[in-house]
Design a protein around this nucleic acid. Structure first.
Lengths: 250, 250
DNA sequence: CGTCAGTTTGATCGTTGTCAATCAAAGTGG
DNA sequence: CCACTTTGATTGACAACGATCAAACTGACG
């Protein structure tokens, strides 16, 4: 429940001057419109469930501040993390409006969200034609990210999977501050989160992390991530540079 | 290359009167609009690549007839199948318009597609506000399907994965003919396809299929799928009935 | 009838999961 | 300020699921 309480903005380590924050351009567009429509901002504590699996949802969340994740619990009780959401992400949009969700969402840090009723979004989309297309692009981006994770889990070794996840989060988080390039960041995950996202057990994640640490590639201790050798990290993740660039939002 | 050549419509076995075909309502809407805009239909042979990984694409495909699949080749050379596309699916829509794709698409049977330039789609979306939202819903549906596959590969045993895939394709394919409920269908996959979609080797897929056959749950021989015991198949897939229903398009 | 793609099976190996114990850090209440 | 608790990290021993390698076998098709 606790975790990162009190140090929410987290930011980069290293203490250099912080550049201007940049959210996903598209998302910010919708936010601006929707926010101007009296949909209030709301704060939530780390660990809170934004919505649960099987709940009937009629609102969409726009994540303004903090980290969250989408997850699924399979029948045998094991959790699969589907997506780590960063500021600018839209959560809970559902093909069939007010239908039940097939996954849950949980705050990873303290977060700030604005909620937008599905209905409002529909109306907005009629009034502003670019809203629908923007949303389509965002959904398509989420889908492509999910496709990347499928390849990761289905076709890579434990070591590659972990390296991949770390690299992805590093790139996605870092791209919020264009121009900056820190080697250290606050990564609000436990090893269990990493395992649940990569289809591994936390025990095995630990072993993999030990390996990466001993090889002086990355260190990840108590939610502090330090990239020691970016090149070899990219190598260990065995990821295409082109794909890597697509993680960074523009 | 060959495969199902010459028996393209495939259809249900069993020989009962075929009910009316139903495509995804949303998709058909876009198709109708786009087709009226002189974007021609095009036939492609089974095995043809519609587009390859890393190609620069500026057109979107609407799959009118046949099966296709999206795939990714990871750096170590292994293939991951991301999605099996059925009639009504939109393929190749990309968040950043004319950017390179991070995955390829290949026809599984002979297919018929209509191509729609990205540009045209943009213009359509401005003219018809519902187009963007429709596309958003389709992308969101694809994403949810991908999330399901993530849970499948990440958190289930080989047996559950294979059962799940078979069940999903059975339900998705079957829901094109509402009211019909056949126990046999043409499933244009090799065991290698099944393996690449479930994160297994084709050898292990074979062993799992043998198990399911000996237990009299399903038979899958040479692209002919026969469901012997639907209830136990659902059981073997360990899938939530709610989720299963969401596979059927309405 | 021969070729080829795809299926089937066996033997063996190794990556990763499971179980269990210990340790470290941080929060909690007296 | 100090026990006490809780959550998460770490390590070892062992088991198992699925991969790998290799060799037939089968059906489809020219």
């Amino acid at each position: 429940m606790a975790g990162t309480r009190g140090k929410l903005p987290a930011g980069w380590g290293g203490g250099q001057a912080r550049p201007t924050r940049l959210l996903h351009g598209d998302g910010a567009g919708i936010l601006r419109i929707a926010a101007s429509r009296k949909s209030g901002n709301r704060a939530m504590r780390a660990g809170r469930n934004m919505f649960r699996i099987g709940e009937r949802r009629d609102t969409v969340y726009f994540l303004a501040e903090g980290w969250a994740f989408l997850y699924n619990i399979s029948k045998n009780g094991r959790r699969q993390i589907l997506h780590f959401a960063l500021p600018g992400d839209v959560l809970g949009f559902h093909p069939a409006g007010g239908d039940v969700t097939s996954y849950g969402a949980q705050a990873l840090t303290d977060i700030v969200v604005s909620t937008i009723p599905h209905k409002t979004l529909e109306h907005l989309a009629i009034e502003f034609p670019e809203v629908g297309m923007t949303l389509a692009r965002m959904m398509s981006r989420d889908r492509d990210l999910a496709y990347g994770h499928l390849t990761n889990i289905g076709r890579r070794t434990a070591r590659e999977r972990v390296a991949n996840l770390i690299l992805e989060l590093y790139v996605r988080y870092g791209s919020q501050w264009p121009g900056a390039c820190a080697t250290e960041m606050h990564l609000p995950l436990t090893q269990e989160h990493v395992g649940d996202a990569t289809g591994l057990t936390s025990v095995h994640v630990n072993r993999v992390l030990r390996g990466l640490r001993q090889e002086k590639i990355v260190e990840f201790h108590y939610r502090r991530l330090r990239i020691l050798d970016p090149d070899r990290l990219v190598d260990a993740a065995s990821v295409d540079p082109q794909v890597m660039r697509s993680w960074a939002r523009r």
